[in-house]
Amino acid sequence: AINRPEQLAEVARRFGNQVVVLSVDARRCPQGVSTPSGYEVTTHGGTRSTGIDAVDWAARAAALGAGEILLNSMDADGVTGGFDLEMLDAVRRQVHIPLIASGGAGRPEDFAAAADHGADAVLAASVFHYGTMTVQQAKDALRAAGHPVR
């Protein structure tokens, strides 16, 4: 999608935007890199800089036909210190399509915090793989905070 953004529109026109889920690997801008939002899109698992503003890219992708955005915080991924709520806020202010928060879950209450900051869904892996918490604990925390859970 980064190399050929118009592909998002082509797929959305042909199959509907509900099938277009754009994964955005973003991080806070490192020293020497500057974007208006302070977040940059990366590729190759967060190892390559693009210089593209992550918030602008999310908005552009939504305008082109993305039906959902999976927002991966490369800074928070695997660290278990919580989702990057500031990044979620920044993207949510610009896009009105479903937003999935990824990267940073460490405690059950982190899931509710992400939902409070505009995530329509949350994604976690290591906390479940390593048995730090159960899916049920995450669901219970979301329910307790008043968020719908399936």
Rank of each mutant, 00 (worst) to 15 (best):
E6G: 14
G78R: 01
F15N: 00
R28S: 09
V95A: 00
V11I: 15
A119D: 02
G131K: 03
M87P: 06
V122I: 15
H44A: 14
A58G: 09
V24M: 09
E68M: 11
A54Q: 10
F111M: 15
A144L: 07
R92M: 05
L123D: 07
A61N: 07
L8S: 02
L70M: 15
G45D: 10
H147L: 01
H147R: 01
F111Y: 15
R14Y: 14
R48H: 13
A101S: 03
A58Y: 09
L99K: 02
K139G: 01
D77T: 03
R150D: 05
G103S: 02
V135N: 00
I2E: 12
E6N: 12
P108S: 03
P148L: 05
A62M: 15
W57V: 09
G146V: 05
A9I: 01
S49G: 11
Q137A: 15
P108L: 08
D84C: 02
R143G: 08
A115M: 15
N3W: 11
V135A: 10
T47A: 13
A12N: 08
R4I: 07
I100A: 02
G106R: 03
H147S: 02
I52M: 14
G78D: 03
V21F: 12
V122W: 12
E10Q: 13
S73V: 06
G16D: 05
C29I: 04
N72D: 05
A105K: 01
G32S: 12
H96P: 00
A66R: 02
T134N: 08
M74S: 07
G104K: 01
A124P: 05
F111W: 11
V55S: 01
L88Q: 02
G103D: 00
R60K: 15
G118M: 07
G32N: 12
A9W: 05
L71H: 04
T132W: 08
D56K: 08
V19Y: 14
V33Y: 12
A145T: 01
A9Q: 14
V20F: 05
Q31T: 14
V19A: 13
T47W: 13
M87I: 08
A119Y: 03
E10H: 03
T50N: 08
P108V: 06
F15R: 09
Y130K: 07
G16N: 04
C29H: 06
L85E: 05
A105V: 11
L142D: 04
I69W: 08
L71R: 03
S73Y: 12
N72R: 03
V11R: 06
G146I: 02
G16W: 06
P30C: 01
A124N: 00
G38Q: 10
G106H: 06
G106L: 02
E6Y: 14
A125Q: 00
D53N: 08
V149C: 06
A112F: 12
A59C: 09
P98M: 01
Q31P: 12
G78W: 05
A1C: 09
